[in-house]
Design a protein around this nucleic acid. Structure first.
Lengths: 250, 250
DNA sequence: CGGTCCCTTGACAGCCGTCAACTACCGTGG
DNA sequence: CCACGGTAGTTGACGGCTGTCAAGGGACCG
């Protein structure tokens, strides 16, 4: 019944508002449904496919991406544990982008019917899903700002700050460290940079002491210094329990 | 009762699904509420403000934007007539970006209560609002692709295609032409380019015959040629009546 | 008619991409 | 045990797309 201790979706939504035991129970049930496991570099759904269900990432990293005809590739966003791949995506007739795994991923395929049922019975979850949608939109906007205005160093630093805070929200950080299972090629596709320049930028961040990156572990010795280097303002993540007026009274 | 003939929001939502007379009536009523007019280059809401209502653009152009501390500015998206500024934005405690007018703008400030009421009584509208949210997210993603992968020429061409089709969806095109009330500085802030380079790029598009841009009128003699130049695929706009299974039977 | 906004043009510089080669690491298999 | 191949990371040289700086022109307005 409660296979995930704790369920990262619940952890994330509780950044917005406290859920009731019934709310959590419903979410846990949903997260047990249609659980799938795939290896790294596999597609969860492809551009052109018809979305049938809501995908919830339970463990591992995935990403949205899009290919251009000539082979260029842009990673559009990252999915971390607890992330929903668009709570109402099945409203659309076909996917306009693909979602693929970066690491081995465990995810739940929640049928549309179940989503409708949950949102109908649990208004607090409905609110929380809207919050999640709005935060994802805000993250996407911030990527636009990064790609449009920030240079390579700021861009990379900004991404590190974002990932660290998002992982922290679902309990996946360890002190000043977190997992970063991305190759430099992955970072390049996400940041609109070449692999070579990602490499140079990482070395600059390392040599200035702003990050320590060994293997797939990222350490940020001084988060506020990194934030300064990136002109990072965490407000767009809306992690301040903004829905607390909506808290369940337990 | 029906001050806008036709209401651009209804035109847009009917790209997704046919609305019933009652649906349309409810939307028209909402669009009459709290109507405001502002001049060009004024803010509708600012970063840090608390969102209280849903803003609906009735006429004119607006944009989301964000300033960095050192003065850089990124336009994150454009609002055209019929666009909603996030149907549920009031769930958030504070704005993480600003929304400002580019031209004189008429917009409706629809109180949160009214939005809740409409979505409760009109499930078809609720679906259509979700569709609108998903399409806006898709547009935002496409901007990430443009900023990350496309060079200046493709980027500009892509934007022209997008704007033309979006305006067409709300009946604001005239043959191969549409309004484009943006200065080159505005285009620069949106595309992450300098004003000088925007100028050069526009001239290249003009001299290759892909666009005609005089004053604030954009003409696209051959849309498919422009689409080819931009590697533009309209699928992300989801304008193919994807919600037709949900149509009201009139 | 001076001022402002917007557009335009040329010269030059720099950030970042491309190309190419090299190293390190790891799992496989002879 | 070591050869081998593939992936990931690293480095240097070079070039180009795009930014910056600067100046000038046209349109509109008080």
């Amino acid at each position: 019944m409660d296979p995930l201790h704790p369920n990262p979706l619940i952890l994330k939504l509780e950044q917005f508002t406290k859920l009731s035991p019934e709310d959590k129970h419903a979410l846990n049930l949903a997260a047990c449904e249609g659980v799938r496991q795939i290896g790294a570099r596999a597609d969860i759904i492809r551009e052109g496919d018809r979305p049938q269900s809501l995908n919830l990432i339970l463990s591992g990293w995935a990403c949205r991406y899009k290919h251009l005809e000539d082979g260029r590739r842009q990673i559009i966003s990252f999915f971390l544990p607890g992330d929903l791949c668009d709570s109402h995506v099945f409203i659309l007739r076909q996917m306009d982008h693909s979602i693929g795994s970066l690491t081995p991923v465990t995810f739940a395929q929640i049928p549309r019917r179940r989503v409708d049922e949950i949102t109908l019975k649990h208004p607090r979850i409905t609110q929380a899903f809207w919050w999640d949608t709005l935060v994802n939109a805000a993250i996407q906007r911030e990527w636009v700002v990064s790609l449009g205005q920030r240079d390579a160093l700021e861009r990379m630093a900004h991404l590190m700050c974002e990932i660290f805070l998002r992982l922290q929200a679902v309990g996946q950080t360890d002190g000043h460290s977190c997992d970063l299972p991305l190759t430099q090629a992955g970072l390049a596709d996400a940041m609109g940079l070449s692999v070579v320049h990602v490499n140079r930028t990482l070395q600059e961040l390392r040599s200035s002491g702003l990050i320590v990156l060994k293997g797939r572990t990222l350490t940020i010795p001084d988060l506020s210094a990194l934030q300064d280097a990136a002109q990072f303002n965490p407000n767009y993540l809306h992690l301040d329990a903004e829905g607390r007026h909506f808290d369940a009274n337990e």
